[in-house]
Write a protein that binds this DNA or RNA. Structure first.
Lengths: 259, 259
DNA sequence: GATTATTTGTCCGTATGTATA
DNA sequence: ATATACATACGGACAAATAAT
């Protein structure tokens, strides 16, 4: 978690007063805690892509653990594709978690495309159901109106990124499901119904631990954190057209808000 | 966390196929995972305060674990004061964790603004140190320049909300720490150095598990998720003046971005 | 090429925590 | 409460690959 570089040792919070011993805390293994801290450092830019990490022995001393324990943490991140250890040379940052900018015009395919990864989404399931009072308010529907509900999994380079549940007015977008199934794109499915453009109205962000079913779809270890994104998209007149609830694999993503 | 109303049951996702077996994985003990899920359920209102939980054997079967393992999870929540097990009577919800939906009504900039400009929280510690290469780049300093580092804790109604680490150029803002100590405000401390206004340049949001030290300050169970905010503030000319790294207790907070 | 220091990889054993029966 | 199996964490020793001298 140390945000500072590796040059000097920073006292106080976050910096490990050399030899400070972490504890195996409350059912969370030490190696898991260390893996999380290393991952956070990589995400925060402490070590850039391609750069070399301090030697295992140095890191182990910094975290106050045995080298084997540190190696277990590195092995975990290596399995996730974040690090690569090479005998005799060192351990290197292989890839940095994708950054997902939140702006008024957020489009998954564009974001992933920009970062030179192949986007992909797949429809897990869909259903047509009567809008709950909650949805009636959010989408400004008439009580009793029905909605399409889509469960989708978004993937980049074969790695699951997010699991989403989306709702659309079934009256306004009757063929949304089939159009989405054909194109794999919400933008194109909406365009087929004459909607030229839409924008993000608001985004609520929270975090929690993944549920087992979510962990399975996102290929996460049970107990891994997910970033939860509740969004509302509106058309040109400001009328809500999409309500969506996405769970991102926190270890593979970072949300960015530019002001 | 299902965003749909409570009327219908959602097939597939989120529903627990009875007898579904959780696995011990990723260095997080089974009992810890179950404790987190029970806590989330209590927070979500599945069981109200004072109500009785299903019998241990029933819960154990639902989670697909041995009764001892479930008892270990219940013991954890009992130690936290959430549950109380009474022999012969059952296990009862003692108290429900408070949730601060700061976000549902507050603008993202205001939340973070409050956090950065008028901490209202307390200064845990401060230090002066040589800027790491990482900070040199972020704050556009000269190598070897020194920075102020402030650790602050924000509290609402006596409940810890966030833990922040901030860095400022010590050359440009020599008296920042004492001014901050006097006023309790970053804005006023900066104004004392002639800085009229500053704006948020970017915010990176990620999530991970709380570290032991963070869990202690935020009064979280080890293994609970934190929302991590990495921010950069700039002056009128776009020169970075503050880099800050905040950890929010995810179970008590939600961030909102309005577009 | 040979030597040496550094770094990761693998093996041994021991103690403790976790999970089931 | 006991027994068993596996995961976690530590400590030490040595092998293998790499880079610099």
């Amino acid at each position: 978690m140390t945000l500072s570089g590796d040059g000097e040792e920073t006292p106080g919070l976050h910096a490990e007063p050399a030899g400070f011993a972490m504890e195996r805390a409350g059912g969370v293994a030490l190696w898991r805690q260390i893996a999380e801290r290393l991952k956070a450092d990589i995400r925060a830019g402490v070590w850039a892509q391609g750069s070399r990490l301090p030697a295992e022995s140095a890191l182990a001393e910094r975290f106050g653990v045995n080298r084997h324990t540190l190696r277990r943490a590195v092995a975990e991140l290596a399995a996730e594709g974040l690090l690569a250890a090479r005998q005799g040379r060192g351990t290197f940052v292989e890839s940095v978690p994708i950054s997902y900018p939140i702006a008024s015009r957020t489009r998954f395919s564009e974001i992933i495309g920009r970062q030179a990864r192949s986007p992909g989404g797949r429809l897990i399931s869909s259903s047509r159901e009567t809008a709950s009072p909650w949805l009636v308010e959010k989408l400004r529907l008439r009580p009793g109106e029905s909605v399409h509900r889509l469960e989708t999994l978004r993937v980049a380079d074969g790695v699951p990124i997010s699991l989403s549940t989306s709702w659309f007015s079934a009256e306004r977008f009757p063929d949304l499901v089939s159009r989405y199934a054909e194109t794999g794109s919400v933008t194109m499915a909406l365009a087929a119904h004459g909607l030229e453009d839409y924008t993000r109205q608001r985004t609520d962000i929270s975090a929690r631990l993944a549920e087992p079913e979510e962990a399975r779809w996102l290929k996460l270890a049970p107990g891994a954190p997910v970033l939860v994104n509740d969004i509302v998209n509106v058309d040109g007149e400001g009328v809500p057209i999409q309500v969506s609830h996405s769970r991102f694999a926190a270890e593979r993503i970072q949300l960015t808000v530019e002001s």
